[in-house]
């Protein structure tokens, strides 16, 4: 059964590394739902978060192939791990007018989202949270008329596990 997997790849910060990773996935016939690559606190280390919708068997293949790349240091599929904090970020533009604005602000309040630009006919708002929270937020805003949104894709960090 296909399901969404979030894979965190730690790689050497070499030129073209993102192309290597995405190229490998394309070559092996896997579709990427989202990909974020960004530098880390170590200048020679780069982290990439991928979301791939695939079966467990294929995900195992994906992680093996990713590990095989010379510049790959570590690959973790965090989907079934609970010691990770996973977040996603969204910026969303929704239609708004005098009648609907207060309803919108109620939702913004509940979700702890933040208005970025309030105009006569629309509203731009940002939200950070777990992917399920983001999905729900989008769902509830749909009746107001969503004009556009951009999602970051998932990214994650291990929890501190020093205390038992």
């Amino acid at each position: 059964m296909k399901e969404k997997h979030t894979i965190i790849i730690t790689v050497a910060n070499k030129v073209g590394i993102l192309a290597r990773i995405t190229g490998l996935l394309a070559q092996r016939g896997y579709n990427i739902e989202s990909a974020i690559g960004a530098p880390t606190e170590l200048s020679d280390i780069y982290k990439i978060s991928l979301v791939i919708n695939e079966t467990d068997h294929h995900i195992e293949q994906v992680t093996k192939q990713l590990n095989k790349l010379i510049d790959t240091i570590k690959v973790v599929d965090i989907s079934h791990k609970n010691n990770y904090i996973v977040r996603e970020y969204i910026i969303l533009k929704v239609k708004s007018n005098l009648k609907t604005r207060s309803g919108l602000f109620e939702l913004i309040e509940i979700f702890k989202a933040k208005p970025l630009d309030v105009a006569q006919a629309h509203l731009i708002v940002e939200l950070t949270g777990h992917v399920r929270k983001i999905d729900r937020f989008i769902e509830l805003l749909k009746p107001f008329g969503i004009e556009e949104y951009v999602r970051s894709g998932e990214f994650a960090m291990t929890e501190y596990n020093g205390i038992k």
Binding site: V15, G16, A19, R20, G23, L24, Q27, I70
Partner: peptide, 16 residues
């Protein structure tokens, strides 16, 4: 060349 050979070699380098 690096783009062309990416999927057909074990590893490749472009010297910068």
């Amino acid at each position: 060349m690096v783009g062309l050979t990416r999927t057909i070699c074990k590893h490749n380098f472009l010297v910068q």
